[in-house]
Every structure is written in C-alpha cells, then in structure tokens.
Computed example of a mutant assay.
Amino acid sequence: MQLSEVQKWIYEFYSKRGWTEYGPFIRVGFLMEEVGEVAQAVRTYEIGRDRPDETEKSLQESRQAIVEELGDVIGNVTLLANIYDISLEEIMEAHQNKLTERFQQEKKD
C-alpha cells in the first residue's frame, strides 16, 4: 500500500468514528499514549512483564502486540499530519533529506 493510500484510509476510517475532530494538542496526547503502549509491548517481548496479575504471552502474541501498537502510532502521526495538511510522502522526503545531509560528512571521511 502506498503512503498516500494509507493516509487516505486512516483519515476515512477515523473520520467515520468522529476521531478526526480532535485538535492537535489532544491528538499529540493520544500519540504519546500509543508510544507508551509500544514501549510496553517491546518490554513484554524482550524481557516479559513478570506480573502475577498478567498471563505470559507467547513471542508471536508479543510480536503481534508490537505490530498493532506501531499501527496505532502511525494512525495518530497520520492524523496529526492531516491537521497541518502534510502528506506522509512529504514527511518521509524531508526526513530522508535531513538525514542524508546531516550524515553526508561520514561518506567523505
């Protein structure tokens, strides 16, 4: 799936549920919550939770949790980009250019 298709699908799906009505400060809050859930999923995968009130997950279940939580992060990043009329392609191009320019010196050494 192309980034533009992803961005369109996320907007349409979230829009049907009224989730696109939140402003940037609320959206950033949701993004931070989801990043925390990624951190928890990675911890569970890497070292486990070691809590008596939680059952152990298999590595496959733990990996799937990481996949799902990363999807939630991408969804929130996409909606934040939409607020500012920024395409995911523009984000990735700017990111690539920034890193390429920043680390250009390494290639010359």
Rank of each mutant, 00 (worst) to 15 (best):
A94T: 12
F103E: 11
I66T: 01
E46M: 10
Q105V: 15
L70A: 09
Q7P: 03
E106P: 05
K108Q: 14
Y14S: 11
V77R: 02
E21P: 06
E37P: 04
M32I: 04
K98A: 14
Y11K: 10
R27Y: 02
V6K: 11
T100M: 13
E56W: 08
K57T: 02
S62V: 02
V38S: 05
K107Q: 14
E106T: 13
K98C: 11
G23P: 05
K108I: 14
A65Q: 10
E21F: 05
T44Y: 06
L70W: 08
E12W: 06
E56K: 10
A94Q: 15
E101S: 13
Q96E: 15
A94G: 09
A39F: 04
Q64S: 08
R43V: 01
M32G: 00
E89R: 11
R102E: 14
I83R: 09
G29T: 03
N76W: 02
V42E: 08
R49T: 02
Y22M: 07
V6G: 04
I26C: 06
S4Y: 07
A65F: 01
P52R: 13
Y11W: 12
Y45K: 00
I86R: 07
A81R: 12
T44N: 03
G48L: 01
E93R: 14
T20V: 09
I74A: 14
F25L: 11
Y22P: 03
G71E: 01
L59C: 03
I83H: 08
L31W: 01
Y11D: 08
Q64I: 07
D50R: 06
I91T: 09
T78W: 00
Q7I: 06
F13L: 15
D109A: 13
I91S: 02
R49V: 00
L31N: 03
L31T: 01
A81H: 12
E89G: 11
Q64V: 05
E69K: 03
A41M: 07
Y11F: 15
N76C: 10
A94Y: 13
Q105G: 12
G29D: 01
D53V: 00
N76R: 09
T78N: 05
S4N: 10
N97T: 15
E12R: 09
V35M: 03
V28A: 00
Y22H: 08
L31C: 05
G48F: 05
T55I: 12
F103R: 11
Q40N: 12
E46A: 09
A65K: 09
S4M: 06
P52W: 13
N97H: 14
L59V: 03
G18I: 02
Q104K: 15
L99A: 12
E54T: 05
D72I: 08
E89S: 11
L31D: 05
E69W: 07
V35R: 06
Y45P: 06
